[in-house]
């Protein structure tokens, strides 16, 4: 993913990514990345938890606007246990797409 990000940025379009593996993103020196401490396959949170999905996107857009140094990895410290619990409750309340 970092390779594509670098390639796009090098062609003059600003980029931002999200990662669950800080060391891998740091090693490839992605231009800008938001880090979430969540499992693989869940970079935007949990099913039907639209608020969390949006928060990740907003964090990415914010980093895009105010990053000053290439390679910045900014933490979005939302606990996975909280995301999961809230998503379960939303699902029980019958939220569906």
């Amino acid at each position: 993913m970092g390779l594509i990000q670098r390639e796009i940025e090098a062609r003059g379009v600003p980029t931002v990514s999200v990662t669950v593996a800080k060391d891998s993103t740091a090693a490839i020196k992605a231009p800008r990345a938001v880090f979430v401490p969540w499992p693989m396959g869940h970079h935007f949170g949990a099913p039907f938890h639209f608020e969390v999905q949006r928060r990740v996107l907003f964090a990415m857009l914010e980093l895009l606007q105010n990053a000053t140094q290439s390679g910045e990895i900014r933490d979005l410290p939302i606990k996975w246990a909280d995301v999961r619990r809230e998503a379960r409750i939303l699902t029980e309340q019958g939220r569906r797409l």
């Binding site: 993913m1 390779l3 594509i4 990000q5 670098r6 390639e7 796009i8 090098a10 062609r11 003059g12 379009v13 600003p14 980029t15 931002v16 990514s17 999200v18 990662t19 593996a21 693989m40 396959g41 970079h43 935007f44 996107l57 990415m60 895009l64």
Partner: peptide, 26 residues
């Protein structure tokens, strides 16, 4: 890098004319 990264980057920049690219691995 030689195939997928370059082709997607070219499509994003030249063909789709994106001003911003968001990326996510899985």
């Amino acid at each position: 890098e030689a195939i997928v990264a370059r082709d997607i980057a070219a499509a994003v920049v030249e063909e789709q004319r994106a001003d911003v690219a968001l990326l996510a691995p899985a």
